[in-house]
Amino acid sequence: MTTKISFQQTSCAFLVNGADFLAVDRVDLDIADREVVTVVGPSGCGKSTLLNMAAGLVNPTGGQVYVDGVPVREPGPERGVIFQQYALFPWLTVRSNVEFGLTLQRGVSRAERRRRAQHFIDLVGLTDFADALPKTLSGGMRQRCAIARAYAVNPSILLMDEPFGALDALTRVQMQDQLLRAWSAEQRTIMFITHDVDEAVYLANRVVVMAARPGRIKEIIPVELPYPRTEAHRLSPEFTEIRNRVWHAVYHQALEEDRAT
């Protein structure tokens, strides 16, 4: 199996109040081609920073991130990002938002662009809102629009920062299955941040548990469940066991920290 994304001793420090604050501390992590890796951890532990370094939006202050063996210097359309804050262009309709990335690709005709955008708009269930402005959409609908926009450019890597956080439980489960279906059809590599332990286990080949202060990897828990995953997996004893392990890793640590302070 080839490595798609490789963090090598990757650190990131921010200047906060004149002092260096270590948001990510020497992370080593290899994500294989076509693997789904989910990242969980308490808020503020550096999950978004880690993802942004892979996206090329934040430069590591130590170490390096490699994608296909090449150090990441800047963002690129082969690495799709879904932001925690949706980041829709408020002056564009849903359709124009979804088409945005496609307009930047050479050799995509207008009709083809339309067709592809429509496909992903339908996919996320926004058919009736294709010509609406973001301000008229609910949080969940905005998130779905952001997902369609990222999917539309067909990136080989998807970097997703709590993408389903604003969705209701049912839509969330639908989007998870949708994501896995698209993943197995198009063979993408996915790095997925979530605070939902069930979601982390359901999607992942491996779950990365991070700890805070400084942000680091605490444990990597493999999920030995076969794909395609179904609702039956969620109810299996194996699932429950892994889920409990992850839960423990995240919250045991949180409790420890509470005790320490």
Binding site: L57, P75, P77, G80, F83, A87, F89, V153
Partner: peptide
């Protein structure tokens, strides 16, 4: 201009010129 909007354009493949024309200009209009 919201930095995440600029980032959103960049990850979709927009260079400086496109980001400027299609994000910074409308966002600051």
């Amino acid at each position: 201009v919201d930095k995440t909007l600029i980032n959103a354009a960049r990850v979709l493949g927009a260079g400086d010129g496109v980001t400027f024309r299609r994000v910074v200009v409308p966002a600051s209009s």
